[in-house]
Design a binder for these strands. Structure first.
Lengths: 188, 188
DNA sequence: GTGCTACGATACAGACCTGTATCGATATAG
DNA sequence: CTATATCGATACAGGTCTGTATCGTAGCAC
């Protein structure tokens, strides 16, 4: 049946939750093993190092992001509507207790050296988001699509950080209207 | 004459630079002592714990922020001009190699627990910036000053994070124009 | 049954961390 | 000169971290 959760999945889910909430450096492998009820050696059998576990979490977060992005925007009729659908969803999410910021911004802050594997994955993710924004800004008819894309990008990351700094009920409550204003000004 | 640098200042300046560049958890007191050329016991005589040193750095960063803010805006004739002066200066700074993001966002990311002393100082700082933005937004004649203030706040923190994530030449190159667009839309 | 594999539990090695203790040198006040 | 305080250097204690080694067990193929 393969329905039951494997030890590897159990480790991964526990690590994901702990990394996201408390940070990468603050959580040790002993904590992950104990919290997941999985033996330490089983953890190391599936993930040869803590960095491998961090990298796996980030790559999974990237997939989840794009799956969610696709689901959010697939019914929007225009590029502009797709962008707004994303920012409305973002606004809702970052004001939720389940939000602890952005895994990619968090890892880049904790490991600022750009050659750290996790930072690399984070950079690739952010560049891909930036590229998607550029594409949509162009399709939406922005006069300077690259500028609009970067402006929206700043709003997004500002909203994520507002969540991590303030918790729920943070300054990101109006991020969607800010995005709308920037888009309108860029296409007129 | 008191011109010479005291050991306490030497420790503080070294710690500030290292914390800002590499992060709070990544830098140990041994590194600070060695890098500053100051004995470890001298460090602990002036700062009883590493957390005290972190807190002192954050409080100093807060003072520097407001001194800089005052200097930047004191010659601006209107509230709107003051806001723009700040965001133009921010745009310049975050695209500089000397920028490693925002010390307050960084500490909040590394120590997400809100009861951590450094997180508290960071929260107070961000709330005071938010309040200043609200005051200026109101003076500038925004129809919804609180909303405009929070939108600008997101732009600011997004710009700081862009710097930490990407280094120099980051998506924050157009943060000032984004601020201008939001302000114009809010006051018209 | 028998051999094999995955697993949990635990102990351990080596490194690093914060914070303390100790000692010798130096500088300054009286 | 002498006493006191500050400093640098170093060793150390106790804890935590990553990663490994070891052992006993449970399930499964054959």
């Amino acid at each position: 049946m393969k329905k039951e959760i494997t030890p590897k999945d159990q480790v991964f889910q526990t690590a994901s939750k702990l990394f996201y909430q408390h940070g990468y450096r603050a959580i040790g492998v002993d904590t992950i093993a104990a919290e997941s009820g999985i033996g330490k050696m089983t953890l190391y059998r599936h993930y040869p190092s803590k960095d491998d576990l961090i990298t796996a979490y980030l790559k999974d977060s990237n997939e989840l992001f794009w799956n969610n992005f696709e689901a959010l925007t697939k019914d929007a009729p225009t590029a502009r509507a797709k962008l707004m659908a994303f920012f409305e969803s973002l606004q809702e999410y970052v004001n939720t207790p389940a939000c602890y910021g952005c895994p990619f911004l968090n890892v880049a802050t904790e490991y600022p050296e750009t050659d750290y594997p996790g930072h690399q994955v984070a950079l690739e993710h952010k560049q891909s988001v930036r590229a998607k924004f550029r594409q949509l800004a162009k399709e939406a008819g922005a006069k300077k699509p690259d500028v609009l894309a970067d402006q929206l990008f700043l709003l997004m990351d500002g909203a994520y950080m507002a969540s991590r700094m303030f918790g729920a009920n943070n300054p990101a409550a109006h991020v969607a209207s800010a995005a709308r204003t920037l888009i309108e000004a860029a296409v007129e």
